[in-house]
């Protein structure tokens, strides 16, 4: 496993909020990260329907985005979200896990640009998508 990807995996697994939400790394590649989050009754936003709150899906997409930055070929030392714009397409189906796939598609010396999409078990209809700008802390040469 390349060093950058090993780093990204430990980066995610060390985040208490991500752990509390039950996030799991599904796949990592160069500038890419797939993270999943199981359905959990504690994360419900509408008790009448059992639909997961959008905020929990935002947290998953934010974490996947940060992981994609950490997996970039430049092997950043760390990253933080500068801004994230989330579009909500539909309610996630109750009982289904959510998967977010993030791609860090451009970096400058100090900024990384990311797009991310989230699905439930219906891979044909995304639940939400987001784009973000992240800080890029490069390693000392």
């Amino acid at each position: 496993m390349p060093e950058a990807i090993r780093l990204a995996q430990s980066f995610i697994e060390a985040l208490p909020h991500s752990r509390a939400l039950g996030m799991t790394v599904e796949a990592l590649g160069e500038g890419r990260a797939d993270l999943s989050m199981p359905y959990d009754a504690r994360l419900v936003g509408d008790p009448a329907t059992g639909v997961i709150h959008g905020g929990a899906i935002s947290a998953l997409m934010d974490t996947a985005s940060g992981a994609a930055v950490m997996c970039h070929a430049s092997a950043p030392a760390s990253t933080a979200t500068l801004d994230l714009r989330i579009d909500y397409f539909r309610s996630a189906t109750p009982g289904q896990r959510i998967v977010a796939r993030a791609e860090c598609y451009h970096v400058t010396r100090s900024v990384a640009f990311v797009r991310v999409t989230a699905w439930d078990e219906d891979a044909a209809r995304p639940v939400a998508a987001a784009t973000g700008a992240f800080t890029l802390e490069r390693r000392a040469p």
Binding site: A14, L15, P16, H17, S18, L21, H53, G55, A56, S58, A59, L60, M61, D62, T63, G66, S78, A80, T81, L84, I86
Partner: peptide, 17 residues
Amino acid sequence: LIGNPALPALHGGATAA
């Protein structure tokens, strides 16, 4: 609610929520 335990700082996702 912690994201980065090294700083430590609130998780961006918790802030967004």
